[in-house]
């Protein structure tokens, strides 16, 4: 088989074109700082050569039995700019809703929501979070590469659930209670819609569930999770379509998913 000089020439040029990529890939390995906090023998910091697999990083931690893996967090500075944008956009939308709200009661509720969101930190949490060692080790897609400084927060299992749009902001967790049971026990504030809720699980997973007597759905929410009742559609109509309800709750639930379980 004869290979033309023009063909060889093209390959040489092509390889030269790819050199800039190669230089980036062949850069010397970096060291990243890994910090473990929470249910570990003592807060510990490790310097690890990157890239390194998540399973290898998690094996470094001297984890105590109290660790609640379902609510564990992997915090990265690289996630923070996007989350800051999300927070800013969300606060702007709440402000627009306050303007659109006609009743003082609703305005007051929305101001409380605004203050709540404002007080929540930009954490850099990777969501949804799955740091369970069994799954990380046996599911290659979950065994991600760690390429930047990271903090792993392993909280104790909380004893409560959190609520938005309800009279009580928190209730004790019971494994026997479904989302519907909590919805029935915690009175809905006026201006919030009945029949369905958003759930933000402790691992950052976002779900939507029907609630009330008319559903047989048996959904549960893990300790440290959120149950969020939606505002009525009429409030969003009053913003002259500047905010859609779906869009607002997508942002709000995504924001709540970034929050970590407090000590």
């Amino acid at each position: 088989m004869r290979v033309s000089s023009r063909f060889i020439g093209r390959w040489i040029v092509s390889l030269l074109l790819s050199l800039p990529f190669s230089v980036g890939v062949c850069a010397p390995p970096q060291t990243v700082q890994i910090v473990f906090k929470g249910c570990v023998n003592e807060p510990s910091t490790y310097a690890v050569q990157s890239p390194v697999r998540l399973s290898a990083v998690l094996e470094l931690a001297a984890v105590q039995d109290c660790a609640y893996w379902h609510g564990a967090s992997w915090l990265k500075a690289g996630n923070q700019p996007e989350q800051l944008k999300l927070k800013t956009a969300l606060l702007e939308e709440v402000n627009l809703l306050i303007e659109a709200a006609e009743s003082e009661t609703l305005q007051r509720h929305l101001r409380i929501l605004h203050d709540q969101i404002e007080a929540m930190p930009v954490t850099g949490r990777t969501v949804p979070s799955d740091l369970d060692m069994f799954r990380v080790e046996t599911r290659p897609l979950k065994n991600r590469l760690v390429v930047e400084d990271s903090v792993f927060w392993l909280p104790k299992r909380p004893t409560q659930l959190y609520f938005l749009g309800f009279e009580q902001g928190a209730m004790d967790y019971f494994s026997t209670q479904t989302v519907s049971d909590y919805w029935e026990k915690n009175a809905l504030k006026p201006d919030y819609e009945k029949g369905w809720v958003y759930v933000v699980q402790a691992n950052g997973k976002i779900e939507k569930h029907k609630v009330g007597y008319w559903t047989h759905e048996q959904a549960y929410v893990a300790p440290g999770g959120w149950i969020v009742a939606p505002l009525k559609e009429s409030l969003f109509d009053a913003t002259d379509d500047r905010i859609s309800r779906d869009g607002f709750y997508r942002q709000l639930t995504q924001w709540l998913a970034t929050q970590v379980i407090q000590p």
Binding site: S14, L17, S18, F21, V25, Q49, S50, V52
Partner: peptide, 22 residues
């Protein structure tokens, strides 16, 4: 050819020098 060669080069490099000991 550039894209193809780039992919070949990147694959080769990723499987070799790009990996750390860990």
């Amino acid at each position: 050819y550039g894209v193809l060669a780039g992919l070949v080069a990147c694959t080769a490099l990723l499987s070799g020098c790009g990996l750390t000991s860990a």
